[in-house]
Amino acid sequence: MGKKVYNLPLGGGSMKVKVKLFTTLREGRGKELMVELEEGDTPQKVIDILNIKKEDVAILLINGRSAEFDAKLAEGDVLSLFPPVGGG
């Protein structure tokens, strides 16, 4: 996908995935986005589209479950991306 800038909705495929961004990842991108992906697309594809560096994502959740960058996304999934966070 390269660095092409998309008009909303991002992506252009037939499968809709909601992306939630947190803390610094929101800067210039917003809190919540809909991306349209192709069957078999992955979180890696999403961060490419959003121009997010892999190393800036510390925690990746699909529907609230920890997942990997190469997981297969499905229609209606919610992808949450966090930079390193902690507290207590």
Binding site: T23, T24, A58, G86, G87
Partner: peptide, 25 residues
């Protein structure tokens, strides 16, 4: 250099956890 102690906690405080804990249900 640690993302939590070097960036997350200084910028957002401990309340940075609200969303991640909620997103995990």
């Amino acid at each position: 250099e640690n993302g939590v102690t070097g960036e997350g906690l200084p910028t957002y405080g401990t309340a940075v956890l609200v969303n991640i804990i909620n997103e995990n249900g």
